[in-house]
């Protein structure tokens, strides 16, 4: 996925800092789907993803004056996203069971259509089922591993950027990424045939 040019948002952010709601709406529209995507794949539940996305933008509204323009806005924003995701996870773990594959969480929501759509209904059903299995596998990872995976695959953040977002070292990021892949490989080994053709030596 294409990363945004964080510096390009600076004029909009400045307007937000001056209390311009219209500018904040523009910022919201620019990042709503990206934030929601991370939240949705983090919790695998559309209602929780909506809650998380709302919280992120409310916190952003409250704290945007603290942004100092000496770092990437996206890094700053995703620190909020990561914190809200982790807070929500902790909060819900205390009271509720976090939805995973076994709890049936993960309502099928509409996804942004892609040009390379499957050719037939059978393919479509197969693709949906595979996608559902991958989502469930991601949801079963520990929250820390999950976040690293999502930031890497949806935001294409570098290890250094992820380290900045998550407040850890690049080495820790690399380690979490590797562990995440290893755990997913075990869970998804039955899909080897379906996915195996995708990348060749």
């Amino acid at each position: 996925m294409m990363k945004s040019d964080g510096a390009g948002d600076f004029p909009v952010i400045k307007a937000c800092q001056e209390g311009d709601r219209d500018a904040f709406r523009v910022l919201f529209e620019s990042y709503r789907d990206r934030t929601y995507t991370i939240a949705y794949h983090f919790c695998s539940d559309d209602t929780m993803a909506s809650d998380i996305t709302q919280q992120v933008f409310l916190k952003l509204f409250d704290s945007i004056r603290q942004f100092r323009f000496n770092s990437e806005f996206t890094t700053w924003l995703y620190r909020l996203v990561a914190n809200v995701c982790m807070d929500e996870h902790r909060k819900r773990r205390r009271f509720l069971q976090w939805p995973t594959s076994s709890t049936g969480g993960g309502t099928d929501v509409s996804v942004v259509p892609e040009s390379s759509a499957p050719a037939s209904i059978e393919d479509h059903i197969g693709a949906r089922e595979m996608n559902s299995q991958v989502r469930r596998a991601v949801a079963s990872l520990s929250p820390k591993l999950r976040l690293v995976i999502l930031l890497r695959y949806f935001e294409d953040f570098s290890y250094d950027e992820m380290a900045s977002v998550l407040g850890c070292s690049s080495g820790t990021v690399a380690s979490r990424l590797n562990r995440g892949h290893q755990q997913l490989a075990k869970q998804l080994s039955h899909l080897r045939q379906e996915f195996g053709r995708a990348i060749s030596l």
């Binding site: 709503r32 559309d46 709302q54 490989a185």
Partner: peptide
């Protein structure tokens, strides 16, 4: 193993946020 997981993760799609999300956020500003 890595080829499998990279391919699987790359198949995950962005998800569109609900249309009324701004209304909900705005109501709480």
């Amino acid at each position: 193993e890595t080829r499998l997981t990279v391919s699987a993760l790359s198949s995950l799609k962005p998800v569109e946020a609900p249309q009324d999300l701004w209304r909900r956020v705005e109501a709480r500003l």
